[in-house]
């Protein structure tokens, strides 16, 4: 029984992170039809910049805020000076473009921070919380809290603000949106800012649970991408659910089957789902006149 709860907690923690990354993917995708495979690097940058800033003796809160701001800026620069000029009509080229960006960022990070692993101090004490035989790191609670907070902020922004309506409009009909006087480039910039910021927060939140290094973004990004695809790329609630599903499958797979096979189990699940539903669990097949 305690094992079960341990797996559950692990699954919720990593699933929450995947959900945040996936929402970052979807936010950008909705606005600009770009899948930003450099998304995982935002998490890596968040964690590592926070480590460096803390190293200068800065207070935790300030370091946190500054790293999130810096990553947000980086995200906006990427959109403004690179992705905006990508071939928007060609998904394959866009994939390759953002893969290029992600390895570029990772390479630059390896020059700054080397290939060593860094430990980031947890938000609060290192003491695990224990009740009736189940123990969990305090940081895990913080991660779950951060995830819930981010999910709420995304939900609020997208559903309760004019900005969210404008961004949604871009995803429905780009031309009409432009005619309504909304600048899709600006929306895309905002989407990148939001994804980068949420990615940085998620990256800082999970860094203390494990060590962090220049290449942690790869797997986090891929799992987030998996969640976005599994959830169907459209619906933030769908991809959130998919994120948690992947986290849980991974945790229970690692615990009950084999930790070496946990990723394989997740990927098998994804291929299996796509075989049955080619647009993910919650994605609608695209309706359009298909150029006829």
């Amino acid at each position: 029984m305690t094992d079960f709860f341990q797996f559950l907690v692990n699954g919720l923690v990593s699933g929450g992170i995947y959900a945040i990354v996936a929402i970052g993917f979807v936010t950008i995708y909705q606005v600009s039809k770009v899948i930003n495979l450099a998304q995982g690097e935002f998490l890596m940058l968040g964690g590592l910049i926070a480590v460096t800033l803390l190293g200068t003796g800065m207070s935790y809160g300030l370091a946190f805020v500054l790293s999130v701001l810096m990553v947000t800026l980086i995200g906006m620069l990427l959109q403004r000076f690179v992705v905006r000029y990508g071939p928007m009509s060609n998904q394959i080229s866009l994939i390759i473009l953002t893969i290029g960006l992600s390895i570029l960022i990772r390479g630059v990070a390896s020059m700054f921070w080397g290939k060593d692993a860094y430990a980031l101090a947890p938000f609060t004490s290192n003491e695990p919380i224990t009740f009736s035989g189940i123990s969990m790191a305090q940081q895990s609670l913080w991660v779950i809290l951060a995830v819930l907070l981010l999910l709420f902020v995304f939900w609020f922004l997208m559903n309760k603000t004019l900005l969210g309506k404008k961004m949604y409009a871009c995803s429905v009909n780009l031309l009409a949106t432009r005619l309504m006087g909304i600048n899709p480039n600006k929306m895309a910039l905002l989407a990148f800012a939001m994804s980068a910021a949420s990615g940085a927060i998620a990256g800082i939140a999970i860094a203390p649970l494990n060590v962090t290094s220049y290449d942690v973004g790869v797997m986090l990004g891929i799992k987030g991408f998996s969640a976005a695809i599994l959830g169907g790329l459209q619906n933030p609630i769908g991809v959130t659910a998919a994120g948690f599903l992947i986290g849980l499958v991974e945790a229970f797979g690692a615990g009950l089957i084999s930790s070496g096979l946990k990723d394989a189990i997740v990927f098998l699940l994804i291929i299996g789902v796509l075989m049955i539903k080619p647009t993910g669990l919650f994605g609608e097949p695209s309706v359009g006149k298909g150029g006829l």
């Binding site: 390895i103 570029l104 390479g107 630059v108 020059m111 220049y214």
Partner: peptide, 8 residues
């Protein structure tokens, strides 16, 4: 990772 930077 200089080569990674270059490839990217």
């Amino acid at each position: 990772d200089m080569d990674t930077i270059v490839y990217g």
